[in-house]
Design a protein around this nucleic acid. Structure first.
Lengths: 106, 106
DNA sequence: TGTATATATGAATTGTTGTTCATGTATTCA
DNA sequence: TGAATACATGAACAACAATTCATATATACA
């Protein structure tokens, strides 16, 4: 019995984690925050202003991303700067983006 | 004012579509189905049996993936075989998987 | 045509998730 | 120490999404 090239043996547990991981990208607010942070670190208030969102909305979503170690906070005085904390985020973002843009053309 | 290398100008609309796209991968049932179909097309009942899920659960999720053109059905008699219908699915799946496996190693 | 098989789907239910609003904590500075 | 600023957080609410159960449709075959 032959295996196809793309097939891999992945545990149920890993598949669960994988879906949990993709969930972080599956929300408009979070993907906008991620997109913004691709250009560099930014304070909470700056993010909120740039995205025209309430501060608490941004804080709540940042907490989710922070808990998942996708962003990392650095305090400077009263401000807290958030930066992407995962090498794969840009890659995944761009792979998904390529799909969307390709679809738009076709 | 200089732009960082990873920054791109992406419309709000595109970002919304992007998050919608990632949602498809953000569910355990769907990611398991996608994973299964990476090895080739499979009938609904075969998917349900392989994943130990009820037929209606699989059908409902396949409809979501079908509506998004991520899978494509082909009827053969009474059976309907579903196959992945997007070149980017495997790429996205594997990029996310790389992240999970990398994280597991510590 | 009647029965069995394979799949799809609608409605109800349940669980989950995002936002809002109010408030709490930390820091700065006068 | 008190006021202002920046951010975090808990609880309530609303919206959404997944599963379940019952049933409908389509095909095959006797």
């Amino acid at each position: 019995m032959k295996k196809e090239p793309n097939m891999q043996n992945i545990s149920l547990d890993t598949l669960f984690e994988l879906s949990e991981f993709f969930k972080f990208f599956g929300d408009t607010t979070r993907i906008r925050v991620i997109h913004l942070l691709l250009s560099g670190e930014m304070s909470v208030s700056a993010i909120a202003e740039k995205l025209n969102l309430e501060q608490s909305v941004v804080s709540h979503q940042l907490r989710i991303l922070r808990t998942a170690n996708l962003v990392k906070p650095t305090r400077d005085g009263r401000k807290i700067y958030y930066a992407l904390d995962d090498e794969h985020i840009g890659e995944i973002f761009n792979t998904g983006l390529a799909h969307i843009l390709h679809k738009k053309k076709g």
